[in-house]
């Protein structure tokens, strides 16, 4: 111990380079670099426009199309999206719609990040703990490989439900009411209000309503730019991965193309049994439980909820 020369492991350079740099690089290689290599690096990463275009062409965006139809003025004003139905529009207009929607999703995502939504809502479904039955399909690495998951938003805590399979579960009007005061739609919710997402015009939200429906009935909310972006983002999340729901919807579209009148008739006949948007507050508990199941039933397909507007 007397001579510094002998005990090499007790000299600064040995510790600095082996423990400091060497072990750090080893650990990071196992925990960071190898996963990156296995997942294919950034070679297959898609841009947001590519992702949105793919979604439109695969007909994965019924809710986004509903949003475009609900607020054409706002889309025109904020994202320069022309008021045309995507699938019958000329290619140049389609490109414009894709660009606007991609921008809205991206904006919504940055708001979701900056306002800390991801601290309480995770974005991956684990293959355990009955999560596939509750939320939807188990998350796979490939679905995250685009710039709309850069940086990732997996989250490490759930104070609210997971959101990666959110598309189509709730509906635009549900989200609006929920942002005015989460207790309108989910009594007992601890989520904060997000007043900046909703334009209440002259109405004022009631803080703790005795009857949520009454309190909300006097309001006539419309999304602000931020609200529109966030709702678009939420309705986009998971729109690419709902196989059973998507197949059923595509079958309906095909039937509609073949025989529009019969389809209309079928839709109106199913309306009474469906949960329309204004009864969402009462049935929020039950719709939460069976969120993945209810997406299979005809009543909550976007085609019918869109038609009710």
């Amino acid at each position: 111990m007397a001579s510094g020369g002998r005990a090499i492991h007790e000299r600064w350079a040995f510790i600095f380079f082996l423990a400091g740099i060497g072990f750090f690089v080893t650990g990071t290689f196992i925990q960071g670099v190898l996963p990156i290599i296995v997942l294919g690096g950034t070679s297959k990463m898609k841009t947001k426009d590519q992702v949105v275009a793919e979604g439109f062409y695969k007909r994965q965006f019924p809710e986004v199309i509903q949003l475009l139809a609900m607020y054409p003025n706002l889309w025109k004003k904020y994202y320069n999206v022309p008021d045309q139905y995507f699938y019958t529009a000329p290619p140049a207009v389609q490109k414009q719609i894709i660009k606007g929607v991609a921008q809205a999703i991206s904006d919504g995502r940055w708001i979701y990040m900056a306002e800390g939504c991801w601290q309480c809502h995770s974005q991956f479904v684990r293959p355990v703990s009955n999560e596939p039955a509750y939320y939807g399909h188990v998350s796979v690495p490939s679905e995250y490989d685009n710039t709309l998951f850069l940086p990732h938003l997996f989250g490490t805590e759930r104070k609210g439900p997971d959101l990666i399979r959110e598309a189509g579960k709730k509906g635009v009007e549900w989200h609006l009411a929920h942002f005015v005061n989460p207790q309108y739609t989910v009594p007992g919710s601890i989520m904060p209000r997000f007043a900046k997402f909703v334009d209440l015009k002259d109405g004022k939200p009631v803080l703790t309503p005795a009857n949520p429906n009454d309190a909300y009935a006097s309001l006539n909310p419309e999304p602000t730019k931020y609200g529109l972006a966030v709702i678009t983002y939420l309705e986009w999340l998971g729109s690419w991965y709902r196989p059973r729901f998507f197949d059923e919807w595509r079958k309906e579209v095909q039937e509609e193309q073949q025989n529009p009148q019969a389809m209309q008739a079928a839709m109106t006949s199913t309306t009474p049994s469906s949960n329309s948007s204004n009864s969402n507050a009462n049935s929020s508990n039950s719709s939460n439980t069976s969120s993945s199941n209810s997406s299979n039933t005809k009543s909550s397909t976007p085609a019918s909820s869109g038609a009710s507007k």
Binding site: F16, A19, F24, M45, N146
Partner: peptide, 29 residues
């Protein structure tokens, strides 16, 4: 000694690659 050299490397690792280059699962790792 080790902590002094680890800290800046850790900070660089956390704040740049997963924010600007690697999305999704790789970024989460």
């Amino acid at each position: 000694t080790a902590g002094l050299v680890w800290t800046p490397m850790v900070y660089v690792l956390g704040n740049y690659p997963s924010v600007f280059f690697y999305p999704g699962a790789a970024g989460a790792a």
